[in-house]
Write a protein that binds this DNA or RNA. Structure first.
Lengths: 205, 205
DNA sequence: TAGATTGTTAATCGATTAACAATC
DNA sequence: TAGATTGTTAATCGATTAACAATC
């Protein structure tokens, strides 16, 4: 965690707020309150106010928050008021689905290259991407100055892919492989494993 | 949260432990310690011991934990020592990828039906599944006694799909749509939104 | 003005960690 | 036995909540 003294758990909630606010805006709403937002998200209004107050006073007493303005501010805080180029490794079923996904673009991210090591897949075209050999990563990633990557390869290959990505300059990894990645302190990792979420729920059933 | 007085945050870590232990077993290891497991996961050994102690004494002083035994016990606690039938709603790119994913089966889950409301997709065959009309959910789900579902439809449709699933008897939902779902207290929801994870990391870049 | 809601402080609550006796 | 590691208690740390003055 290089910068700042703001709890990581707070940072983790900001994208959730941003998503809910964007939704409210899409519904045509212009103003909201910590109370309303909290109700929608199942979070206390006090927590929302406290979280936001780490970054400034975005609201107005008696009125609440201007949705458009708060969205703008949160995007700035999260640095998603720009577009981040992302590399994708893995062009199997999952990688293909990720490559197709249209939801990245309007929320700050753009996949710019897709890698795989399967000779059958290299050269294949997925939407606007041509699958490149994984050995080209070391060249392509620094060339574009890409700092974020998504891993969608089998569990066995994920750690090695991560190591090579980091060597190529990647500093943030979204890992879809069902395995824990070990990375240096200055590299950020997030895991997506649907089974973990399912297993968390079966406990209560 | 119907049952138990064990913190939800502890339950949330168990699947992570289970995944790491399964990995260790796959590497041919038979015994591990809270210290080793902690190192792999970036968690303190004390936390692992404390978490496990909620459910019993699974280790042996001086030795550590028998991996196979601990896996078995954790599966029992999480109720994934059986196979859960899961309904999938949405047969677009994402739903298709989810349907193809082989990783559910060996970790306690089996997709048994796929629904969509697009006439072009109904009747289509995805692996072993034939896409069924979404209007059949109310019949098919109770018939099979299915209690878990995954939502892979566009954000606009997700809340309505969730409402109908719950009406049909679903009590745990894994939501891939980038929107917060509001559900009754006795229904469990987990969200998967890759953009939220990416946005959480850009803050630090 | 009266009503509403913020931003912030202090109090509460809960989770993590440190430490160690028990024991394999 | 000596060394290692658990399970558990108590101490610490941090996050959430309640409450309210400020103010729109």
């Amino acid at each position: 965690m290089p910068s700042s003294n703001i709890p990581d758990i707070v940072i983790g909630r900001l994208p959730i707020y941003l998503r809910a606010l964007t939704r409210l805006a899409a519904e045509g709403r212009e103003v909201t309150s910590s109370h309303e937002l909290g109700q929608r998200l199942g979070i206390s209004s006090a927590q929302i106010r406290k979280d936001l107050s780490h970054f400034g006073g975005f609201g107005k007493q008696g009125t609440g928050y201007q949705i458009a303005y708060l969205i703008e501010q949160l995007k700035q805080v999260l640095q998603v008021d720009r577009e981040w180029e992302v590399a994708l490794v893995g062009a199997g079923d999952l990688g293909r689905a990720v490559a197709h996904y249209k939801g990245f673009l309007y929320r700050g991210f753009k996949i710019v290259c897709v890698f795989d090591n399967d000779p059958d897949k290299i050269g294949e075209v997925i939407d606007e991407y041509t699958v490149q050999p994984i050995d080209d990563m070391q060249q392509v990633i620094p060339e574009h100055g890409i700092r974020m990557a998504m891993i969608a390869v089998p569990a066995e290959a994920a750690q090695e892919v991560a190591d090579r990505l980091i060597e190529a300059g990647i500093r943030a990894i979204l890992n879809y492989a069902p395995i824990n990645l070990n990375v240096p302190d200055d590299v950020h990792v997030q895991h997506i494993d649907p089974v973990v979420h399912l297993q968390r729920m079966t406990y209560y059933l």
